[in-house]
Design a protein around this nucleic acid. Structure first.
Lengths: 204, 204, 204, 204
DNA sequence: GATGAATGAGTATTCATTCAT
DNA sequence: TATGAATGAATACTCATTCAT
């Protein structure tokens, strides 16, 4: 049973496969994976439900591809940031913050989906590989924080694992309320969050 | 169909109703509302599924009671904090942070549930009242921040609505990884988070 | 997931479970296992298809119970025959022939089902245990034939494994055309078949 | 929709049509008609499922051609045997037995298929014509037996219709366990079966 | 209060078949 | 001839809910 792979239509037409992935991601984010039916996806794509199976083996397979694509790209971007920021922990941290928030622009559905359904998904063997990739990202964050402390750029009276969790959680959850074209751009948010994280809320 | 209300078992036995609520909250938090079956709840309670309907009108009714109880108590505690902290915005903010994190001790399942399933629940008419109550809590936070700025306790070069979102999000998501009896207590986390929020990450 | 077991209705009413088994056996025999739908079974039982799952875990589980019951009883009857016939191979063989043909009376659907669907079923792990039981029956037949040859009751110029196959096949397939209440009883058939097997077709 | 008939490939290449028939017969025999999908057939042929419809009108049409070819040839062979054996019933019967068993060599899949799926197929209007042809074969067998009794070659104390059924059933079912190249050839089996049928199992 | 049989609408998935390219 | 995308009806199975006992 060979995995069904994308074959770009020769004319360069937008692919059905990609359309299904996009539609599915939106729906999964809106209603949750379990509550999104295969029929919902088909309808929104303009197909009958059976036709989806011409492109994907199962509902799970669709989800897997959505999440894998997102996580892989995130890792790529995070690695690029670390490579560019040399040995400047502050620049590195700013970079990670920016990458994370800007991921919301291209991958909002995947991010929401991951937040809402991860507690269930994490126990499904098929999605185990995402945990492993998540661990890679975690390690990038924590090593930047460690580095910053050792170079005395960051305070040494804070529990760095809690700092990491605090920042990470706040950033990802922003996908819930962020709406493009309203008040703040993602870069605005990155700047404000960085200011708060680096300098704190109190007047000196 | 009159709403079924709690009737304490005559002998003073631990209530079946409460047992069902606790079991349901756990299951909803573990697997998500949609993926938890009424049979799951019944099994874990030691009943058959039909029997649940002697205690609750529907699966929705169970969920409603779980969430309402949690939100109501949270409002009560937040209000108490504001009442006690007089006109000291820093103390007020510390209080709100502490209440929020400590809620994880008593209501972890409800918090997780709300995070995972809220995107779906928010659109169900039955749960509309929770949005209203959520707005009350939001207003308490934002007014504390405003107050702090006006009194020049907090910096005036930060977008306060973003500060509020940042802090709120980081706090609630802590329910995902917090585990009682490990490394940090909830008070530890509240202290560390407060330190970071007030003073920032950078060495002076 | 406890196997759902029969609970005889206290009043001694004919069981739904048994009714489902009987109806299913008939249908499987008529149309084959794959072509019988769960809806077919439900309809003939006077239920809706979902209701079957209150009594059985799956379509497979129904089939398994039908076949297991049949094979177990057949083994019991064959063993009884061997026990009774002492060291008289001719009597033993007559007994096995009679038991086999008479099984058609009580278990015609199961026999037909086994004949038609066995080539598919034999490869399903769930039904592996039936192969093992089949081997037990085979051994009873072949040991009777061996015994008969050693005691010089049976000819010694025949390949006994072929004799066994020949007889076995002819007996079981009789279930296809036998119809109760017509021309020959099962005992008639057993007698005629025995005559042919023991003495052959030719005039002396 | 004209019935699609064989068109030999111009170059004398082995025919696609025949390849599809062979592959289908194998699969139908292995898994049963209902459980064999058109996709299975296409895969094993090295085509995509849609392409089969250039050669056959439907799955039923494939099955029909397989069975018709087999039954027609069987009738031809049986008729040849009767023509050759003149008025010697014993030779005629031996001939029919041999033809039947030897058919296993060339048409095993068709024979298995017919055994497993006949109970379902017999009720499909499209396959009614096979019943008629089956009746022709039956009549050949029974007339040989009658002839043998009248000429006092066969015993007169046996129910001939039962003898016929017994022999027929045992012969056809041999297709289930016969494996070419193992222990017995089809002629061996024909000889042993004939010995048993004519002379019986008992030592004189 | 509790049981367990039954409902009926819904779920993901399969599959023979069609047809434009 | 062959492809591969699409159909639409069917399939086994699930599940919140009802209700007579």
């Amino acid at each position: 049973m060979a995995t069904k792979r994308a074959r770009r239509a020769p004319g360069g037409t937008a692919d059905r496969r990609q359309q299904i992935l996009d539609v599915s991601a939106e729906l999964f984010a809106e209603r949750g994976y379990a509550s999104t039916t295969v029929r919902n996806i088909a309808e929104r794509t303009g197909l009958l439900s059976g036709s989806l199976y011409h492109h994907f083996d199962s509902k799970d397979a669709i989800l897997d591809e959505i999440l894998t694509e997102f996580v892989d790209e995130l890792i790529r971007r995070d690695e690029a940031v670390l490579a560019e920021s040399g040995d400047d922990p502050r620049r590195a941290l700013e970079g990670l913050i920016s990458v994370t928030l800007n991921a919301i622009a291209d991958h909002r559905p995947a991010i929401l989906l991951l937040q809402n359904d991860w507690p269930v998904l994490r126990d499904v063997p098929r999605f185990k590989h995402l945990s492993d990739k998540g661990a890679i990202i975690d390690r990038m964050w924590t090593s930047v924080l460690e580095e910053g402390r050792q170079r005395k750029v960051f305070r040494d009276d804070l529990a760095l694992d809690l700092v990491w969790r605090f920042v990470r959680d706040a950033l990802w959850v922003a996908a819930r309320w962020y709406e493009p074209g309203r008040r703040y751009t993602l870069d605005d948010i990155a700047d404000e969050y960085s200011k708060l994280i680096f300098r704190g809320l109190l007047q000196k």
